[in-house]
Amino acid sequence: MRKRCLEVVYRLAKKNKDVVFVGSDLGVGALDELKKELPGQWLMEGISEQHIVGMAAGMAMSGKIVYFNTIATFMTRRCFEQNIVDLGMSKAKVRLLGSGGGLVYAPLGPTHLAFDDIAIMRAIPNMTIVAPADAEEMERAMLASELWDGPIYVRVAKGGDPVVSKTEHGFALGKAILHKQAGDVLLVTTGIMLNRALDAAKLLEAEGISCGILHVHTVKPFDAEALVAVARDAKAVVSLEEHTVLGGLGSAVAETLLEAGLERAPHFKRLGVPDCFPDEYGSQNSLLEKYGLNAAQIAASAKALLSRSEVKC
């Protein structure tokens, strides 16, 4: 997904001379073709995130569209004030491409685990937050980013996630995609959780439980209208995120559903990382499993939630 993300930056830069790429201290060869062909639009500026975000804002105030790539934790946590003041307050056209969003860097420990990035960025007015499901959706999001106003945080997952997004669904920043019409259960996803949700839906349907999926690639601005439209027919809604359950997708879903005041409000559960620092290494998959986010676990949680609803009835 990161490879595709940077490929699109290259294509945008070739097309638009105002597109500038900035890396911090990326791996050797990062966007070498851009460096060779358009050296004036390529910068590698060192391990100085506070400076880079400010610099990117200054460039954006002079008409540039800046794509800044580094590890997600460093560009959200280290330079939070720059993100607020220099990007949010200024509505600067800076695109923060956060590598390793979620639990990707499991072996590296909590300093590198971006399990709070969405909550952090969501608190910033004018900030758009996008978490694509796969390389194809990343491409669509990146192409849309060129003309979008204000700053964008793009959560970049590792490479090789299965491609499950579909061209025919189209893509517009801020518009959630209904992958499957809601049934008794509605799974709400962002990022790579879409592929887990599709597998979980198959398991549920094998047991005769109808399951819809709403994929929220843009967590902010949140597509409340789309959620309310499908959630009103569901008995159980489960949000899935590779992120703390505080302040991310689950919070946005909860806030929206409660404020919607639905006549028959569905039961609701947030699946994600509880309020803790992940205390194991291992792999992205092993951590996802620890927090109940593999397909079987998701299906089981949905069933349990649904049974509460049936007891109530």
């Binding site: 400010g54 610099m55 804002a57 200054g58 460039m59 105030m61 002079s62 008409g63």
Partner: peptide, 10 residues
């Protein structure tokens, strides 16, 4: 300073 540097680079 960083914003100014960005403006100067642009």
């Amino acid at each position: 300073l960083s914003i100014g540097i960005g403006m100067a680079l642009a």
